[in-house]
Write a protein that binds this DNA or RNA. Structure first.
Lengths: 225, 225
DNA sequence: CATTGATATATCGAACTGATATATCGTGCA
DNA sequence: TGCACGATATATCAGTTCGATATATCAATG
C-alpha cells in the first residue's frame, strides 16, 4: 500500500524520505502520520526491487558519482560519510534522494490498476488510488469508482442488518447510524464523480490523461481498441 | 486496541474467539474483518496477563473441572483432546470460552478512559470507545466526545491549508474536499451527541450508567465530587 | 558558543494482516 | 450408509506497519 504512495509521488519528482512523508501528510492527507518505521523499510524494499534508485543528484557539482572509497572508515558509517561528503554545500543536509526507475513505473501502474485486496482498509486504499487516478486510463478510472461504489453499497446492506439486529445501546446505535449516513454521503459523492467521468469520456477535449509522454508501459495496460 | 474490544465484549458474556470476531464484524461493524492472526494472539496475551481466563463452562454436565490427566497423549494435542472430551454434547464443538477476570475489568476501564494514543487510526479508536461508552462515567464520556471534537476541528484546519496549498489535480482535490465535508459532518454529529449528554447530566433520571454493581474499580477512577 | 528545535536516516519490538494448516461438526445427496 | 462439502473453530507464519527511540547535522536564538 505504501509502495504505491511512494511510487506515485516519485513519479512527479525526485524526493528523499523525509519529504515523502511530509507530502503524504500535508498535501494528500492520506496516512495521517506515516511512521519512519514503515517508510524507510519500504524505500529499501523498493530499491532492492529496482523500482527506485538513489538519485545522488547532489548539490551544485556532480562530483564522482561512485563512492570514492575512503578506506579506513568502518562499514555502515562509511556510507553515511561518503554521502555527506558528496553533497556538502547547496542542499540542506546529507539525504538520500530517490528517483523512480522504468521498472518502478511499471510496478506503479500494476499496483494502481490491480483489484483492491478486498479485506484491507478500503477507504485508505481507495483514497490513495483516487489521488493518483490521473495516471489511470479513463476506463480504468471509471472502473475504480464503480468498484468502490459497489463496495459501499454492500456495506450499506450489512449496516441495515445491524440496526435491525440485536438491540444496541444508545452509543453503539448512534455510531452505526452515523456510519450509515457517512456511507450514503460517500456514495452520493462517488455518483457525482462517476457522472463527471462519463461526461469527460463522452466529450474528450484535448488531453485528459497526463502528458505521460510515450513510455512503453501504457501499451501494456490495454488502453486499446 | 483490540484488547479493549475483546474485554468490552466479554464484559457482557463469556465468548470464544470465533464468536468475538463475528460480533465485532456483524454487530459493531468496527474492525471490518479482524484477522485470526490478531485475535488469537490477543486472547493469549490477555490470558497471560490474567485479564481473561478460559471459562471451560462446558456442556450440560460440569465434569471434572481440571484436566483428568490422560497420560499418554503428547503435549499440545493432549490439551485439545481434553477440552473436547470435557464438553462433547450440547455445545457446538471444542472451543475455548473466555471470561473476563477482575483484573480484566480493571484493565478495561483503564484502556477505555486512557487518552487516545494521538497517532493511531483515530476513527477506529474513537469508534471503539464510543461503542463501549456506557461503561464510562458521565463526565468521562463527555470528555471523550469533546476530545474527539477537538481532534476533528484541528483536522479541519489542516485541510484548509491543504486546499489553499499547491494546486492538486482534479481527483486529489475532490478527495480532500470530500474529506473536509465528511469531517464537518462528523463534527455536527458529535455536537448532537454532546448536547444530548449535557441534557442527560442536567436531568439525571434513574440509573444512567450501567448497573456496574459495586466493583472496587470505579473508586479508582475519580468519578468523585 | 551552548542550547534548542527542525531536518534527516535508521532500527527495534510489538501489533496487525492475509494466507494457510488442521480438525470437527452438520447437512445434503447419491 | 458413507462421504463430500461448507461452516465452525483454533492456531501459526511471513510480511507490513506502527510507535518509540537513537543518532547526526544544520539553523537560529540567546
Amino acid at each position: 500500500m505504501l509502495d504505491l504512495a511512494i511510487l506515485g509521488l516519485l513519479q512527479e519528482q525526485e524526493l528523499h524520505g523525509y519529504e515523502i512523508r511530509r507530502r503524504l501528510r500535508d498535501e494528500l492527507g492520506l496516512f495521517a502520520n506515516i511512521s519512519f518505521g514503515s517508510l524507510y523499510p519500504a524505500l529499501s524494499r523498493l530499491e532492492a526491487a529496482h523500482a527506485v534508485a538513489v538519485a545522488e543528484s547532489g548539490g551544485t557539482a556532480t562530483t564522482a558519482p561512485s563512492m570514492p572509497f575512503t578506506g579506513s572508515l568502518s562499514g555502515e558509517r562509511a556510507g553515511l560519510r561518503a554521502r555527506r561528503a558528496a553533497a556538502p554545500r547547496g542542499t540542506k543536509r546529507s539525504r538520500k534522494v530517490y528517483r523512480i526507475t522504468d521498472q518502478g513505473l511499471q510496478l506503479f501502474d500494476q499496483l494502481l490498476d490491480a483489484d483492491e485486496p478486498a479485506g484491507t482498509d478500503d477507504a485508505r486504499s481507495f483514497g490513495l488510488r483516487l489521488a493518483f487516478a490521473r495516471h489511470l486510463a479513463p476506463q480504468a478510472r471509471l472502473a475504480l469508482l464503480e468498484r468502490r461504489r459497489a463496495q459501499l453499497t454492500r456495506r450499506l446492506a450489512t449496516d441495515q442488518v445491524r440496526v435491525a439486529g440485536p438491540t444496541l445501546d444508545v452509543y453503539a446505535r448512534s455510531l452505526v447510524e452515523h456510519g450509515t449516513e457517512a456511507t450514503e454521503h460517500d456514495i452520493a459523492w462517488l455518483d457525482r464523480l462517476i457522472e463527471s467521468e462519463r461526461q469527460k469520456q463522452a466529450a474528450p477535449r484535448s488531453e485528459n490523461h497526463e502528458p505521460h509522454a510515450g513510455d512503453a508501459v501504457t501499451a501494456m495496460k490495454g488502453i486499446n481498441p
